[in-house]
C-alpha cells in the first residue's frame, strides 16, 4: 500500500486572483514582508499496490487526467509505502 501526497499549483505564468487577494489581506494585516503567496490544492491518495513504479505511473496519470488541469496547473507528489 502506498500513500501519495499531491500538490497542485497554478503555473507561474497564470495570475491567481485568489492568491493576490490573500496577499492583499496580509499586507493590510501589516505583514509587509510577505513577498509572494502561492495558493494551491493538496490531495492524499491511499492506493493498493506492491510495485512502486506502477503506482507512481498511476498517480501521474490520475493527476494528468483529473486532479490538475495541465493547461494552467502543475503538480508534484511524494509517494511513500504505508
Amino acid at each position: 500500500m502506498y500513500k501519495a501526497k499531491i500538490y497542485v499549483n497554478y503555473k507561474p505564468s497564470v495570475l491567481d486572483p485568489k492568491a493576490e487577494a490573500i496577499k492583499t489581506a496580509l499586507t493590510r494585516m501589516d505583514h509587509q514582508n510577505v513577498q509572494d503567496v502561492l495558493y494551491g490544492k493538496y490531495f492524499e491518495l491511499t492506493l493498493d499496490g506492491t510495485d512502486e513504479a506502477a503506482v507512481r505511473d498511476q498517480v501521474e496519470s490520475i493527476c494528468d487526467q483529473l486532479l490538475a488541469n495541465v493547461n494552467m496547473e502543475t503538480y508534484r507528489f511524494d509517494l511513500e509505502a504505508v
Binding site: 495570475l15 486572483p17 485568489k18 487577494a21 493547461n71
Partner: peptide, 11 residues
Amino acid sequence: LPGALQWNTSL
C-alpha cells in the same frame, strides 16, 4: 477546446 477558464480577476 484549447485553454482554460480561471477565476474572474475580481473574484
